[in-house]
Design a protein around this nucleic acid. Structure first.
Lengths: 190, 190
DNA sequence: TCCGCGTCAATACGACCGCAATGTGAAAGC
DNA sequence: GCTTTCACATTGCGGTCGTATTGACGCGGA
C-alpha cells in the first residue's frame, strides 16, 4: 500500500481555505482554482477529495455549522453545571452573533450560504433542520413563542451587525432587553 | 435628433428581467447574457444602458428597495389618516415580510444582495442608510430600543420565512406578540 | 437630401470556469 | 526489485463570463 493520508483532515484543510476565500471575496469567488491556491495546493488535489464543486460546498457548509456548534458547546461547558436558564440561553445565542473576527468570518460565510440555499432546496433543508433543532432546545428553557422570537431576533441582529448597520453595543443591548422581558417577571413595576 | 427612447424605462425593464433571473436562479446566475435573454434583448442593449455589470446591479438594488417602499407607502395610505401607531407600524413591517409571491421574490433578491453587499462596501452603505432611516422613523412611534429590536426581528423573520423554516402563521404570531409587548401597557396585570 | 447621432445588434477577445483525462512519484506488499 | 496502488500534479477541453469594437438602421435637423 502507498502512503496513506487522513482524508477528512485534507477535506477540512480545503474547506478552511474555501471559507477564507468566501469570507474575504464572497461566495461567488469560490472556485476550484481559488480555493486550491488559498490552500496552497492544486486543483487536482481538490478534485481528488471532492468529486464535484457542490460536494465541496456542502462539506464547507457543515464545517461552518460545526464551528458555531463547537463554540456553543464550549460556552456552555464554561458556564459550569446547572446554570440559570437566562445565562445559558445568552451564552448560546451570543456565539451565533458576529462579535469578533472569527465569528464575523463565519457569519459572512453563513449568510452567503443562506443566499446560496435560496435556490438549492437540499442546502436549505440542512439549515432548516439546524435552526429548528435550536429552537426546540430553547423551547425547553422558555415559552415556545419566546424561543421562536428569540431565534429570529438573533438572526436579524446578526445580519445588521454583519453589515455594520448596528453597533455591537446596540446589538447586545437589544438582546439583553429581550432576554430580560422573557426571564424577569415584569421587573420594575410597583 | 434620432429616435429617442425613455432611458429609465429601458433601465427598469432590464432591471425587472434581472430580478426575475435572480429570484428564480439566484444572483450568481445573473449575467449580461441571461438578463438580456430574459428581457428579450441582446447583451448590446444591456451594455448600452448600463456601462458595466456593477452599474446594473446597483440599479437593480435600488429598484428592489423601491418596490418595498412603494408597498409600504400604499399600505400606509390605505390605513387612512392618523392611524393608531401600532397599526401603522404593523402595516409597514408587514410589507417587508415575504408573505406572498411578489414579496417572496423581492425578498429573495434582497437577501442575495445582502450577501452581495458583504464584500461590497458601497452596496452595504446603501442598505445601511435605508435600514437606519426606517429605524429612525419607527423610533418616532415607539421607544428607540424597541424600534431597533423590531427591525432586527422583522429581518430575522423574513429570513426564516424565506427559507421555509418558519410558517407564515408563526411569523405573524411572533410579530403581533412583539407589537403587543410594545404597544399595550403591560396588559392583563391587576 | 443627407448628415449625424441615438439605439441597438453582432461579433470577437481574453480570462476564467468546472471537470475529465492523463501523468508522475513514492511507499507498501510480493 | 518489481509491481501495485494511493496521492497528487498537469494539462486541456468546452463553455460562459464581462467587456470592447464595430456596424447597421432610423430619424430629426441642416
Amino acid at each position: 500500500m502507498p502512503k496513506r493520508v487522513d482524508p477528512t483532515e485534507r477535506r477540512t484543510l480545503i474547506a478552511d481555505a474555501l471559507m477564507r476565500v468566501a469570507a474575504e471575496r464572497g461566495l461567488e469567488a469560490v472556485s476550484l482554482r481559488h480555493v486550491a491556491a488559498e490552500a496552497g495546493a492544486t486543483t487536482g488535489l481538490v478534485q481528488h477529495y471532492f468529486g464535484t464543486k457542490d460536494e465541496m460546498m456542502l462539506f464547507a457548509l457543515e464545517v461552518v455549522s460545526g464551528h458555531t456548534e463547537a463554540r456553543i458547546g464550549a460556552a456552555v461547558t464554561a458556564l459550569g453545571p446547572s446554570p440559570a436558564p437566562r445565562d445559558l440561553v445568552r451564552a448560546m445565542v451570543t456565539q451565533m452573533l458576529p462579535l469578533d473576527d472569527a465569528r464575523r468570518a463565519d457569519g459572512k460565510v453563513a449568510l452567503a450560504f443562506f443566499a446560496y440555499a435560496a435556490t438549492r432546496p437540499e442546502v436549505a433543508e440542512v439549515q432548516r433542520r439546524g435552526s429548528l433543532g435550536l429552537r426546540d432546545f430553547f423551547a425547553t428553557l422558555m415559552p415556545y413563542a419566546a424561543a421562536t422570537t428569540l431565534l429570529a431576533l438573533v438572526e436579524g441582529l446578526g445580519l445588521y451587525l454583519l453589515s455594520g448597520t448596528y453597533t455591537v453595543e446596540d446589538g447586545l443591548r437589544v438582546l439583553d432587553e429581550y432576554l430580560d422581558s422573557v426571564f424577569s417577571p415584569a421587573a420594575g413595576r410597583p
